[in-house]
Nucleic acid binder design. Structure first.
Length: 812
RNA sequence: GCGGAUAUGGCGGAACUGGCAGACGCGCAGGACUUAGAAUCCUGUGGGAGACCGUGCAGGUUCAAAUCCUGUUAUCCGCACCA
């Protein structure tokens, strides 16, 4: 069979019949299957795209055949740096290259033969989409969830833009892998931290991979503790430290402020100022390099100032050190060298006091630092309490004097969304000399991204240099004003696309709430694991924020999530041009067709694991497809020739058939495609055995039924192929609108079953017993077995364990 | 350091709540059909001559462990001075 030919034929037919469009009338059965949309950087699909979209489409087709009204849209995450960098290199405008890439990619995606509903396509770089991205920005602003502030931010000198925390990987830029430096800049942030607790709690109820949940949990980084107020000796200033170990506050021998802390320059004494300023300077300069050294030595400088420990009135020296992060907690910590490893190292290095205030429960452990839980000592009234009791009591007592409080801290930072780049959605904000920060009114949206812009990066936003863009009138007072020159992080665009898909052409609203509340949440979301702490977290945040504004009535966007694994090169390494191990789907699709390529991806790997590419595997699928075709054609021949006599065991064939149906159901739900196809292969082998030369009329009817079942079962995996054979068999209706087989439990009941007989847990013999036999009967049959009897000889039988339909274990 | 995962034949990978380890496929071997090969079909295929031994390693629980428990090693992924 010419696979390429039939693929073309059926793709055209499906498109003509609008086979893949969602029918709202069937809302009660809706099933929203979503694959993460792709970035149109390369013109062609790579194996990763195929591996995400092919098997997931088979899952969607399976759901459709099971009677669900499947919605499976596709689109492009089209803003972003690669197009812009490509433009800088080649001079081709990002819009032009992106539009042409999207076109090529869409064509290749269509050739996959997936059930994408292209009538709902989204392209995030188009004004009809980013208008609503901007609208959401304004909503967030109006609800206090978008704000602008000056802060030390991550700056990538190579990409010439700021980055979100999530985009900094071990001190380097996630895109170009260059070192990221800190800069003080005024930028826009989204207040994702307002939702830290709900984002954390909500994870429990999600059907997501546990690894992904754990990653988000760690990223949010909840920590329970307290804040303790330290007043400075000068009587004016004060600061709070965040600690999870308030129980050790009697062991404080110094406190440390982050070098960036604003109090530092005020508190330092004249004598220490030169050293302090030098240290601050060095910290800022050295940070990016030292960040990479894993075990770097702790350094710090005494400010010359002192503060008072609120629990005992003790004078405590104030130090600064870069091991204290300004961005976490309050930017100040108390130093308890006896009970913290870092403080211990620091105190030893600088000769600071070390006071033990916790001893081991059994009194034995004398080693310092002692970081475990224990019993409080040297802490006056609190002596003898457990650490946990002391934490509560000390904070409660401090709270009474307004010197402390219980406090929950999160590692999660607000999301920095400004980017000093061209190829993104402009930030819809206007700065007016008299009205201040003014959001662009909805009627003026979208703020269009101008085409003619000098986008070569020089550290300033390209849009700032575009006069006709940057200059505007204030929407409030009409005075001359300026637009925000930055664009939005592309993750903003992808944080709500799943809400737009079902209502992709709505020109009045971002989406119709009533419709979206019915269509969402997404029932099955499939995509790469690399998005755990970015896209998947941001999308949850957007959903919750829009819910609280009244636009949505659900809490989570993605009920059930699956990550596909990674297909490696044949050499077991990640595919890369430099390694020369890149597998091009095109070559295989050309040779075998898209059905076989997709099916091999599903059969040759465990879906969530992935693994190295292997050429031999694809041939085996091609062979399997040939076998299916042969069966179907020969059964058709029998039918036409009306051959007689029969000699086959219907019962066994029916067993194979219903066994396949039952197991494929379970496997599909689990995304266990490789085993589903294995069951299909077994079924085909069973059918082959009944492909006898001589057949009776009665038998042919069964064979025909069985081959139809086979085609229905194989349809989700090889859609074009199955559709073609289905029509060859004389069916007028598409196989995807035909009734999917259900299994009959009765067909799976065997008259006789084989049991293993063990003696002392070692298999010694096999016996056949009636499937209705009682334990007692089974035991008797087992003991009568020749082999078993001879082994038992005359030894006393201590115990006999009968596990129905599995085995018999005789203990002698 | 913290968190998560993985480890099973020559290879990719199966094994539901503990119950015959190695489904299915690749590869390999033998056979059938061919003048011959390719293709196709059939049979066999964890190791060992054998009693037996076998799921990274060492223990444990159990009539029974790839699966549960304790410890340990290796690899991969994420976070990392988070107070």
């Amino acid at each position: 069979m010419d696979m390429k030919l039939i693929e073309k034929k059926w793709q055209a037919k499906w498109e003509k019949d609008k086979s893949h469009s969602f029918d709202k009338k069937n809302m009660a059965k809706k099933y929203y299957t979503l694959e993460m949309f792709s970035y149109p950087s390369a013109a062609k699909l790579h194996v990763g795209h195929w591996y995400n979209y092919g098997p997931t489409d088979s899952f969607a087709r399976y759901k459709k055949m099971k009677g669900y009204e499947v919605f499976q849209p596709m689109g492009f995450d089209a803003f972003g740096l690669p197009a812009e960098n490509f433009a800088i290199k080649t001079g081709i405008h990002p819009l032009d290259s992106t539009v042409s890439n999207m076109e090529t990619m869409e064509n290749t995606l269509r050739e996959m033969g997936a059930m994408f509903d292209w009538s709902h396509e989204i392209k995030t770089c188009m004004p009809d989409y980013y208008k609503w991205t901007q609208w959401i920005f304004v909503q967030l602003y109006n609800h206090g969830l978008a704000y602008r502030k000056e802060a030390p931010v991550n700056w990538c000198p190579s990409c010439q833009t700021v980055l979100a925390n999530e985009q900094v990987i071990q001190g380097t830029c996630e895109r170009c892998h260059n070192l990221v430096v800190q800069k003080d800049l005024t930028q826009w942030f989204f207040k994702i931290t307002d939702y830290a607790e709900e984002l954390l709690q909500g994870l429990d109820n999600l059907d997501w991979p546990s690894k992904t949940k754990a990653m988000q949990k760690n990223w949010i980084g909840k920590s329970l503790g307290g804040e303790i107020l330290f007043k400075c000796e000068n009587g004016e200033d004060e600061f709070r430290v965040f600690t999870t170990r308030a129980d050790t506050v009697f062991g404080v021998s110094y406190v440390v402020l982050a070098p960036e802390h604003p109090l530092v320059k005020k508190l330092m004494t004249k004598k220490q100022s030169a050293e302090v300023l030098k240290y601050i300077d060095n910290t800022l300069k050295a940070k990016e390099i030292e960040r990479l050294s894993l075990d770097r030595e702790k350094t710090g400088v005494f400010t010359g100032a002192y503060c008072i420990n609120p629990v005992n009135g003790k004078k405590v020296p104030i130090w600064i050190s870069d091991y204290v992060l300004y961005s976490y907690g309050t930017g100040c910590v108390m130093g308890v060298p006896a009970h913290d490893e870092r403080d211990f190292v620091f105190a030893n290095k600088y000769g600071l006091e070390i006071t033990r205030v916790v001893k081991g429960v059994n009194g034995a452990n004398d080693d310092l630092p002692f970081v475990e839980e224990g019993i409080i000592v040297n802490s006056v009234d609190y002596d003898g309490l457990t650490c946990e009791e002391a934490r509560k009591k000390i904070l409660t007592d401090l709270a009474k004097q307004n010197s402390g409080s219980f406090k929950v801290n999160y590692r999660l930072r607000d999301w920095l969304v400004s980017r000093q780049r061209y190829w993104g959605a402009p930030i819809p904000i206007i700065y007016c000399p008299s009205c201040g920060t003014v959001p662009v009114p909805e009627k003026d949206l979208p703020v269009k991204l101008p085409y003619n812009v000098e986008f070569k990066p020089d550290g300033k936003s390209p849009l700032a240099k575009c006069e006709e863009f940057i200059n505007c009138k204030c929407p409030k007072c009409g005075a001359d004003a300026k637009r925000d020159p930055d664009t939005l992080d592309t993750f903003v665009c992808s944080s709500w696309y799943f809400l737009r898909y079902p209502d992709a052409h709505n020109s009045k609203q971002a989406f119709d709430s009533e419709l979206i509340n019915q269509m969402l949440p997404v029932d099955k979301y499939v995509g790469g694991a690399e998005h755990a702490c970015m896209h998947l977290l941001y999308a949850r945040f957007f959903t919750k924020a829009l819910r609280d504004m009244g636009y949505l009535n659900f809490d989570e966007p993605f009920k059930s999530l699956v990550h596909q694994g990674v297909i490696l090169g044949p050499d077991g390494n990640r595919m890369s041009k430099s390694r020369g191990n890149v597998i091009s789907p095109d070559d295989y699709v050309k040779q075998y067709g898209s059905d076989i390529f997709r099916m091999y991806l599903m059969f040759g790997f465990s879906y969530t694991e992935g693994g190295p590419w292997n050429d031999g595997g694809i041939k085996s699928i091609s062979k399997f497809i040939d076998r299916v075709e042969k069966i179907v054609t020969s059964v058709n021949d029998y039918k036409n020739n009306k051959v007689t006599t029969f000699e086959t065991d219907e019962k066994e064939l029916n067993y194979a058939r219903h066994y396949a149906i039952k197991n494929i159901d379970r496997d599909m739900e689990n995304f266990s495609f490789n085993t589903a196809i294995a069951r299909l292969m077994e079924y085909v082998t069973a059918l082959y055995k009944y492909d006898a030369k001589e057949q009776s009329v009665k038998n042919i009817a069964l064979l025909k039924e069985c081959t139809e079942t086979l085609l229905l079962l194989i349809a989700p995996f090889a859609p074009h192929f199955a559709e073609e054979l289905w029509s060859i068999c004389g069916n007028k209706k598409s196989i995807f609108n035909s009734e999917y087989p259900t299994f009959e439990e009765s067909a799976l009941v065997k008259d006789e079953i084989e049991l293993a007989v063990q003696i002392n847990s070692k298999v010694k013999a096999k016996i056949m017993v009636s499937s209705t036999a009682t334990d007692k009967e089974i035991e008797e049959i087992a003991l009568k077995n020749d082999v078993i009897a001879s082994i038992i000889d005359n030894k006393p039988v201590k115990k006999v364990i009968v596990i129905k339909s599995r085995l018999v274990n005789i203990i002698v």
